[in-house]
Each structure stands twice: as C-alpha cells, then as structure tokens.
C-alpha cells in the first residue's frame, strides 16, 4: 500500500478568487476545481470519467489514489477508505492535489 504524505503545496501560482480554486493533476492532465462540490462531478464536467455507483460514499467504486494534497469530507463516508486513497464522490478538494487510477 502506498503511504500518502498529506502535504499541501503553495498556491501562489493561482489567482486569488472569492471561491478557492485548486489544481487536480491526473497523469498528464490537469483541471481546476472549486471547493463548492465534490471532486467526482467536477471531473465529469471536465470530461474525465471515473467509476461510480452510489455517489454518496458507501460503495467505494469511485476510490482513487491520492498521491499528494489535501481533501476533506463534509460527512464521514460509510465506505472504508484505504490509506493513500480518496472517494471522489464525496471528497472536497482543499489544496492542489494529484490523483491516479490503477497502477
């Protein structure tokens, strides 16, 4: 199992807006997300499709690797979240992050 260092990196490269905007790196792709909605819907809007079933934190289908950065959960998901992973359906991105699917 990969261990995650929950390091947040500085956001000086990003413009200061009313709503916090963070970068999400997925392989060579990068998208910008806000803290207003969970990651899953924002990925979908950006045309990046990931697996889902319940979309409310109990099935763990949308589990992805969190390589670095911070996310938080407005409510604690029912699914077991392995260390170094996150649930895209209910996690709010709190810093720039990098995620990955299967090895």
């Amino acid at each position: 199992m990969t261990q995650t260092s929950m390091t947040s990196i500085s956001k000086h490269a990003l413009p200061e807006t009313k709503d916090q905007v963070h970068r999400v790196l997925i392989g060579k792709k990068q998208i910008l997300v806000t803290e207003e909605e969970p990651l899953l819907v924002q990925l979908e809007r950006a045309g990046i499709h990931i697996e889902y079933q319940c979309r409310e934190g109990y099935c763990s289908s949308c589990s992805v690797k969190l390589l670095w950065g911070h996310v938080s959960y407005p409510f604690e998901p029912l699914a077991w979240v392995q260390s170094g992973y996150m649930l895209a359906c209910c996690a709010i991105v709190k810093s720039d992050i990098e995620i990955a699917f299967f090895d």
């Binding site: 079933q53 319940c54 109990y58 099935c59 763990s60 289908s61 029912l78 699914a79 077991w80």
Partner: peptide, 10 residues
C-alpha cells in the same frame, strides 16, 4: 449489495 460489500470490507 454495494452496502453489504462495504460491510465485509470493514
């Protein structure tokens, strides 16, 4: 079943 499998994973 999605809920049950979460139960056994826990």
């Amino acid at each position: 079943e999605a809920l049950h499998l979460t139960g056994t994973q826990h």
